[in-house]
Amino acid sequence: MIRARRNAHVYMMTGLAGILPIVFLAGLLYRPAPTLDSAADGQSAAVDAPITSQASFVSRSTVVVNGIDVQVATAETTSGLVLLLTPTQALPFSDLLVYWSPGESPPTDVSADAFLLGQLSGSRRHQLPGVTEMQTESGYLLFYSRDQAMAIAAVPLSQSRFP
């Protein structure tokens, strides 16, 4: 390098040596606490609870939602019966919610008697509560985009999935 660039290099690195440690320390020391308060938000905590090693699977199958495979399982855990949904890849819809809707025919919208089970973002495994009604009545899992205000798919959920 020519001398002017060598000097510029030293000035730039001296500047970085002064700024970066400050950014690093400030970033760590003042980072905000996690916003999810599990104790205060019991529903979120239940929905996002990790699968315990005591989980006992009752049924497993794969359904297709908008061309993407979603593994559906029911399991008994220490906190009760749960529904486990695992998309093989992210479903390309905004604010995707999962409802259980009672009835013999597939719903095309969120009805007044539908139960909101939780959200289904990304491709990780989601643990949703197994509400009592879905264990005793015929119904459908309704995949609904809240942001786009549209029903994506409805798949039947047989009572045989539950003990």
Partner: peptide, 19 residues
């Protein structure tokens, strides 16, 4: 060379991006 020395600025920005 001057243009490519901007990599040091990019590095500083990326450390900030990660932190």
């Amino acid at each position: 060379k001057t243009l490519h020395m901007a990599v040091y600025a990019a590095y500083g920005l990326l450390v900030g991006h990660v932190v």
